[in-house]
Amino acid sequence: MNLTQEEWVSQLNTDPNAVILDVRTEGEFSEGMIAHSLNVDIQSGQEFVNTIDALDKTKNYYVYCRSGMRSAKACEIMNQLGFKNAYNLSGGIVGWQGEVVVP
């Protein structure tokens, strides 16, 4: 499900079951990320699928990438793997108005 930044942040801040997932490359991630993000590179192919599939499917995942395209694809994959709640940040971190931290 695609959410605007306002919707994404609003839901995230009131969700005790939330996990923030950054699906960019390790290099992109190291340049700056949304606080408390877990980095799983969608471009790592089967490794991405294996890592994602091993995550707790009862959690709610707030997913982002650089522009929102890779994270939209990641949400599709997650839905196919049985995740009920995967929320894509429309516009990605490029349009992010909040704090960005260096890991």
Results as ranks from 00 to 15, higher is better:
Asn2Ala: 06
Asn2Tyr: 02
Leu3Asp: 06
Leu3Cys: 14
Thr4His: 05
Glu7Asp: 14
Glu7Tyr: 04
Trp8Thr: 01
Trp8Tyr: 06
Gln11Lys: 14
Gln11Arg: 14
Gln11Glu: 11
Asn13Trp: 15
Asn13Met: 09
Asn13Gly: 10
Thr14Asp: 13
Asp15Arg: 14
Pro16Leu: 14
Pro16Gly: 10
Asn17Ser: 05
Asn17Pro: 02
Ala18Ile: 05
Val19Gln: 04
Val19Leu: 07
Val19Ser: 11
Val19Cys: 04
Ile20Gln: 03
Ile20Asp: 01
Ile20Cys: 01
Ile20Gly: 00
Leu21Trp: 03
Leu21Val: 09
Asp22Glu: 14
Val23Glu: 04
Glu26Val: 11
Glu26Thr: 08
Glu26Cys: 09
Glu26Phe: 11
Glu26Arg: 14
Gly27Glu: 12
Gly27Arg: 13
Gly27Tyr: 12
Gly27Cys: 12
Phe29Lys: 00
Glu31Ser: 11
Gly32Arg: 05
Gly32Asp: 10
Met33Trp: 02
Ile34Lys: 04
Ile34Ala: 06
His36Asp: 09
His36Cys: 08
His36Val: 11
Leu38His: 12
Asn39Val: 15
Asn39Phe: 06
Asn39Ser: 14
Asp41Gly: 07
Asp41Trp: 03
Ile42Asn: 07
Ile42Ala: 12
Ser44Cys: 08
Ser44Pro: 03
Ser44Lys: 09
Gly45Thr: 04
Gly45Leu: 11
Gly45Ser: 15
Glu47Gln: 12
Glu47Pro: 04
Phe48Gly: 02
Thr51Arg: 13
Thr51Leu: 12
Ile52His: 10
Ile52Thr: 04
Asp53Met: 12
Ala54Phe: 09
Leu55Val: 09
Thr58Gln: 10
Thr58Leu: 03
Tyr62Ile: 07
Val63Tyr: 01
Cys65Ser: 10
Arg66Ile: 05
Arg66Ser: 05
Ser67Ala: 15
Ser67His: 13
Gly68Glu: 09
Met69His: 12
Arg70Asp: 02
Arg70Thr: 01
Ser71Ala: 13
Ser71Pro: 13
Ser71Thr: 06
Ala72Met: 05
Ala72Tyr: 05
Ala74Glu: 00
Cys75Thr: 11
Cys75His: 07
Glu76Cys: 08
Ile77Ala: 08
Met78Gly: 15
Met78Thr: 10
Lys84Cys: 02
Asn85Lys: 04
Ala86Thr: 13
Tyr87Val: 02
Leu89Trp: 00
Gly91Thr: 00
Gly91His: 00
Gly92Thr: 06
Ile93Leu: 06
Ile93Asp: 02
Val94Cys: 03
Val94Thr: 06
Gly95Arg: 12
Gly95Asn: 15
Gly95Ile: 01
Trp96Ser: 12
Gly98Trp: 00
Glu99Phe: 06
Val100Ser: 00
Val100Tyr: 00
Val101Tyr: 08
Val102Phe: 04
Val102Asn: 08
Val102Ala: 08
Pro103Arg: 15
Pro103Gln: 12
